[in-house]
Write a protein that binds this DNA or RNA. Structure first.
Length: 336
DNA sequence: AAAAAT
DNA sequence: TTTTTGA
DNA sequence: CCAAAC
């Protein structure tokens, strides 16, 4: 899409350090397409240098079970992401919420030197690096990663070689499809999967509603999974629909992994909080097999990959029809 | 860590 | 100063 | 109940 990046309008010495390859000269994106896919985190975030730093710190605090501080930096990052342009001076942070002394100090450092000491320290920390690798496996969170680290393990190969480690079903699939799941999902792949799910849903309930959501709906070219929401006009049948869809995917032979979570939605307990209500709807975390032949522009896979398919993480959510409309409005309004 | 509550 | 906090 | 899925 467009090659926007944080560029200070007038300041002299500013952040150019940490944004190497994608920067200068208007180099054609076509030449690095596959490579660009990986780093194309997306969007209209004009403050990547700061939000990346905050997210490193947030992750570090998460690894250390300091949930409050973690949340604080995630919020700080969220605030900066919502700005219409890149920060070019510390003064511009004065009116912003969720930014305290620490966050502003980090911003100041980056404005001045292009990097922040605290962040560099975290990035060079062996524990952080290792936990980062461990938690990159689907099904492995901070607790499990910490447990493995404490027992002296330092790489994914160590994990797989250790006979005493009992991987659960989710983790087994995380390792099994590690390469595929780690690779970015292209918009064409998301479209193909939307079609697959759409046809599956329609075969069960002809008058169903369905939409691609998440990053792709917001116009992203790449994502790390595909989020799809659908429902039936028949109120109360949405869970059955989701279960039927899962069964059909299995029958089609493309269901590689499924973690189904029944609805915990309680109208009396979650009235106005439309956002967190999402968590309570019937949903499932899937890994699906996507055939290359179904993707118009081809799979986002290395040329030497001759399988003709790849695994993709797919989330399906099936709210009651009245909530569906509300959720869609929220997503539509948030952009484009 | 930042903001709200005590 | 202590408790709570995301949507 | 925990951990993990976002």
């Amino acid at each position: 899409m467009r090659e926007s990046r944080p560029v200070a309008v007038e300041t002299r010495h500013l952040i150019q350090d940490t944004l190497p390859a994608i920067s200068e000269g208007g180099a054609p994106a076509a030449e690095v397409s596959q490579y660009a896919c990986q780093r194309r985190t997306t969007t209209d975030n004009y403050n990547v240098v700061f939000t990346d730093a905050f997210e490193v710190l947030a992750e570090c605090y998460e690894f250390n079970q300091m949930d409050g501080r973690c949340l604080a930096f995630r919020r700080a990052a969220s605030v900066l992401k919502s700005l219409p342009r890149g920060l070019s001076s510390l003064e511009e942070t004065h009116s912003l919420p969720c930014l305290g002394g620490h966050a502003k100090a980090i911003i100041g450092e980056i404005l001045q030197h292009g990097r922040a000491f605290d962040v560099e320290k975290v990035l060079s920390d062996e524990r952080y690096q290792t936990l980062k690798i461990f938690t990159s496996v689907f099904g492995v969170g901070p607790k499990t990663a910490e447990k493995w680290y404490r027992s002296g393990l330092r790489s994914l190969d160590h994990i797989l070689a250790d006979q005493s480690i009992q991987l659960n079903h989710m983790q087994q699939n995380g390792f099994l499809h590690y390469g595929d799941i780690s690779r970015a999902v292209s918009k064409a792949e998301a479209r193909a999967l939307t079609k697959v799910i759409g046809e599956t849903v329609q075969a069960i309930t002809p008058d169903a509603l369905l939409a691609l959501t998440g990053g792709f709906r917001r116009g992203k070219e790449f994502g790390h999974d595909v989020d799809i929401i659908f429902t039936t006009l028949e109120l109360g049948m949405e869970e059955n629909l989701l279960l039927a869809v899962i069964k059909s995917l299995e029958k089609q032979g493309i269901l590689l992994y499924c973690d189904y979570q029944a609805s915990t939605f309680d109208l009396t307990k979650v009235p106005a909080h439309s956002f967190e209500a999402m968590d309570h709807f019937a949903k499932c975390f899937l890994i699906l097999r996507l055939e290359a032949s179904q993707v118009e522009e081809g799979l986002n896979s290395p040329v030497e990959d001759i399988r003709g398919w790849r695994a993709v993480r797919v989330d399906l959510v099936s709210p009651p029809v009245d909530r569906y409309a509300f959720a869609l409005l929220g997503w539509t309004g948030s952009r484009v």
